[in-house]
């Protein structure tokens, strides 16, 4: 699969990455090359193969339903870019 500039822009938008227009062709080339590398997988048939999402054949451990956390808002918000009245602030959410 070869990715053209348009496709790269679309992917960048989906991933919320601002990419400089001048860098787009470079990304298109690199990403296309990576996809070409990746597509070597197609050489092998995997029809009957069960996908492997985890390296270990384990199952999910469950946590007791207990409240263990205390309010650490001040500490957490000390590292936040912008807060007010305990809220994280972002530019107005408009569509």
């Amino acid at each position: 699969m070869t990715l053209d500039a348009d496709k790269v822009k679309k992917i960048a938008q989906l991933a919320r990455l601002d990419i400089d227009a001048s860098a787009i062709p470079g990304y298109a080339t690199n990403l296309s090359n990576i996809l070409q590398l990746v597509e070597q997988m197609n050489a092998v048939s995997t029809e009957q193969v069960e996908p492997m999402a985890h390296p270990l054949d384990a199952t999910q451990r469950l946590r007791e339903d207990v409240v263990t956390e205390t309010n650490q808002r001040d500490q957490f918000q000390a590292i936040a870019p912008q807060v007010d009245a305990g809220l994280y602030l972002v530019p107005k959410v408009i569509e």
Binding site: A85, Y88, P91, K92
Partner: peptide
């Protein structure tokens, strides 16, 4: 919030 949206 100063023209912004607050997140809780």
């Amino acid at each position: 919030f100063h023209g912004m949206t607050g997140i809780d």
